[in-house]
């Protein structure tokens, strides 16, 4: 393990057991999160982003199994660690989470304060006053007034809830924050505010971050690296700059095109990529993207391309994208 990375995911496969068989939600995915950097993890809905995140936090639903792979943190495999130890010492203290869909992420019958105190007490043996100190500090960091503490989740707006969730993630000063589509449920203006807030916090505190999204436009100016996920497979990996400038995988290209022009922000429509996500229980033969791919040739229907480094630090899994040039 290189000391330059705060997290190293290698060959991670997470399947769901379903009535029809295994659903390969994440299939041999590997990437590293360099220290102090932000990695954008992008892909359409259903591409397996949350499954990766849930695997990291070991909160997968009962029907999920981790088939193979490791997630290394400080030379230790998170997946092999004793669960109680992981919960107490790693989760939240070292790696914290801003989950997707914050609307129902807080227990509806306890106040914000009690849920925050409970979180701190689960990890640190400190007095209530000290805990409150920490809580006030994190509330300030996310620009929330103190009186939200005595409220129940249903009394908060979406944006307020999202800030609470962010504040909760920062309570114990973690080294890594994983933000899973932190802005999905919010309206555009609030979205922008939240992204800005997260960016600032990351700069100030210097934690590393995985920022999950299906909206590449949010990542511009936020992430240093980008990992593009399609049908549970990593199709392209590189610096944000490289990928935005020179997307190699046909899927990435379409994905980028789907981003609306920033200047026409107001007219923003749902992005649309022709075709549908593949059936992950019985995926198409060959490259998983071939049914939707404009470049697909014979070989694409035969075998599945592996990730290969095309230029330094820029990897892509496509037979027709080698040489760093588009084949159109």
């Amino acid at each position: 393990m290189s000391s330059l990375n705060s997290l190293e995911i290698s060959s991670l496969s997470t399947y769901y057991t379903t009535k029809r068989g295994y659903l390969k939600a994440v299939d041999k995915v590997s990437f590293n999160l360099p220290k102090g950097s932000v990695l954008g993890l992008a892909g359409e809905s259903g591409s397996g982003k949350s499954t990766i995140v849930n695997t990291i936090f070991r909160v997968l639903p009962k029907n999920a199994i981790v088939k193979e792979g490791s997630i290394m943190f400080n030379n230790e495999d998170l997946l092999k660690m004793n669960l109680n130890f992981f919960r107490k010492e790693i989760s939240w203290k070292k790696i914290s989470w801003i989950p997707q869909g914050s609307m129902s992420i807080l227990d509806p019958v306890y106040t914000v304060k009690s849920q925050m105190i409970e979180t701190i007490n689960a990890h640190e043996d400190i007095s209530r006053a000290e805990a409150m100190e920490i809580i006030y500090k994190s509330l300030k960091a996310v620009n929330l007034p103190d009186d939200v503490l005595n409220k129940y989740p249903h009394q908060l707006s979406g944006g307020q809830k999202q800030r609470i969730v962010i504040a909760s993630a920062l309570l114990l000063d973690p080294e890594i924050v994983v933000a899973d589509e932190p802005t999905t449920a919010l309206d555009v203006v609030v979205q922008a505010e939240i992204v800005k807030l997260i960016k600032e916090l990351q700069k100030q505190r210097g934690f590393s971050m995985i920022f999950v999204t299906h909206d590449l436009s949010l990542l511009a100016g936020v992430s240093n690296y980008l990992a593009i996920l399609y049908g549970g497979k990593l199709v392209e990996l590189g610096t944000t700059e490289d990928i935005f400038k020179d997307p190699l995988h046909p899927y990435t290209q379409m994905f980028l095109k789907a981003i609306p022009d920033i200047r026409k922000w107001k007219e923003r429509k749902l992005y649309y990529i022709p075709g549908e996500l593949p059936d992950l229980i019985s995926p198409p033969k060959g490259c998983i993207f071939n049914p939707r791919c404009p470049l697909a040739g014979g070989i694409c229907k035969e075998s599945s391309p592996g990730l290969e480094e095309v230029s330094k630090g820029h990897l892509v899994a496509c037979y027709f994208a080698r040489g760093g040039k588009r084949n159109d």
Binding site: F57, V59, R87, S91, W92, W97, E118, A122
Partner: peptide, 18 residues
């Protein structure tokens, strides 16, 4: 048990008993 707040609580490291 299957709700997202329970998943979140587990991730936050709250002991299973609580």
């Amino acid at each position: 048990m299957g709700s997202s707040y329970v998943t979140y609580l587990r991730a936050k490291g709250i002991p299973e008993r609580s």
